[in-house]
């Protein structure tokens, strides 16, 4: 069974905080819960950004996610 939204968000944040790479693609979070639909994972990750716990890092052509404070060039 798929994780609840809050459980999914916790799993995503955990991965974003502890993964060796500071910036991750949305697809890298799919593994947090193989039972959740990609769209649910995307929505959960975007919600974490809205809550200020993660940030978007964008090259202009693609977008990655980083736990707050881990993104390259972040103005702290």
């Amino acid at each position: 069974m798929a994780l609840s939204k809050e459980e999914l968000k916790a799993a995503i944040l955990e991965k974003a905080t502890n993964a060796p790479k500071p910036q991750l693609y949305v697809k890298d979070f799919y593994a947090c819960d193989p039972d959740s639909k990609p769209r649910a994972v995307k929505n959960a990750a975007n919600e974490l950004v809205k809550e200020g716990k993660m940030a978007f890092w964008s090259s202009g052509s693609t977008t990655m996610y980083a736990a707050k404070g881990r993104a390259k060039d972040e103005e702290k």
Binding site: V49, A55, F56, W57, S58, G60, T63, K72, D73, E74
Partner: peptide, 20 residues
């Protein structure tokens, strides 16, 4: 120019491209 960065406006994850 450096490659990408984090800029944006609150609530949005696009529309602004960071150039440093």
């Amino acid at each position: 120019w450096k490659h990408g960065g984090i800029v944006g406006v609150f609530g949005y994850g696009g529309g602004i491209v960071g150039r440093y």
